Simulated scan of single mutants.
Amino acid sequence: MRLFVGDDWAEAHHDVELMDASGRRLAKARLPEGVAGMTRLHAMVGEQLGEEAEEAEVIIGIETDRGPWVAALVAAGYTVYAVNPLQAARYRERLSVPHGLPPAAAGGRRQPASRGGQGRGPDAQDADLGTYPPYPTAAALAASALKRAGRRGDLAAKAAPIQAALRTEQLSRPEVVTALHKEVEAHFGRHPAAEIICSQPGLGAVLGARVLAEFGDDPDRYTSAKARKNHAGTSPITRASGKKKVIAARFVHNDRLIDALITQAAAAIRFSPGARAYYDRQRARDADYNTALRQVANRLVGILHGCLKTGTLYDEATAWSSHPESVAA
């Protein structure tokens, strides 16, 4: 028996629909993100499969192939496929289940619903949070975070729901991912370019290692900053026809690299005055959030290229010298 699950992932919930092999809807629900939602999904699957759960195959289509939620699905024995939303729309038009897509990870036959896939620990840690000095209490940590974010009023009261959320059971990273995280931190620093890469705003050991791996470390691979930007997919494409000029984002790119660079840019605008001012200027020109962030990423790729070519560490004033208003900000 095969059971098919469509998972529409929003920021805080999942809209799921269960279907049989003929495409007939069996059940649907909106599930919260985290352990509670995953537990409910297992229960829904178990309700449909009943005594056939041990031998049935559960195939899930979702918009991404990474993250604790996807890891929990794979750990439960589901076969998971990352499906581009545009592809999904075309599949729906043809009333067929997607074929020919690579599974997110090695799936297989699902274990009984009562046994598989629940997160076993409370720490779903981010790849590049770094190490910070410990705070005396969780309340002080939450209040400090709110203060840095510009919140006012009774911070202790506002921190309470944050503490409560953090203390609930969370989906965890697989042990192998945690082990790999530690290995990367231990060995990346030995690379000759590691110090330069980690000096860039928004890049730590793990994210920096991914950027290095995707760019490669051949010093002669990119003849110019523009060549590196084009490879990264951060530089826009300009199309001209007569008097009309259209500037568009590059849609053909290395997904892992662009994801890392956008993540870097999102962190950089918080800690680099130059990056923040550059971002604000793009927004002032009516660029939306994603477009402005891509522009920051594009600029940071050029800065990284210059640092690697000259063998120098990142310097805030030098990096934004061609944008003096950014440095002044």
Score class of each variant (00 low, 15 high):
221 R>E: 04
132 Y>F: 14
276 R>P: 03
139 A>S: 13
295 Q>H: 14
70 V>W: 07
114 S>Y: 10
126 D>G: 05
308 L>Y: 05
128 D>F: 03
179 A>W: 14
282 Q>K: 11
68 P>W: 05
314 Y>R: 01
162 I>N: 04
173 R>N: 15
50 G>N: 00
170 Q>K: 15
165 A>F: 09
171 L>N: 00
302 G>H: 00
318 T>Y: 03
224 S>M: 01
116 G>P: 12
51 E>S: 14
118 Q>Y: 09
186 A>M: 12
169 E>W: 08
84 N>V: 12
1 M>G: 13
208 G>R: 07
119 G>S: 04
276 R>H: 14
292 A>R: 00
160 A>R: 14
315 D>L: 02
196 I>H: 05
224 S>V: 00
309 K>G: 08
209 A>F: 02
153 G>L: 01
218 D>R: 06
243 K>W: 05
114 S>K: 11
181 H>A: 07
66 R>F: 08
85 P>T: 06
276 R>W: 08
144 S>Q: 15
235 S>G: 07
170 Q>A: 12
180 L>V: 04
195 E>Y: 06
228 R>C: 10
203 L>M: 10
46 G>F: 02
125 Q>D: 12
231 H>S: 10
113 A>H: 15
59 I>A: 13
28 K>I: 11
124 A>C: 12
41 L>N: 01
190 R>I: 05
174 P>N: 00
92 R>M: 08
244 K>F: 08
52 E>Q: 09
146 L>S: 05
56 A>P: 06
310 T>F: 11
208 G>S: 10
138 A>I: 07
255 D>S: 13
270 R>P: 01
50 G>C: 00
103 P>D: 09
117 G>Q: 02
217 D>K: 04
147 K>I: 06
178 T>H: 10
186 A>F: 04
268 A>F: 02
10 A>E: 12
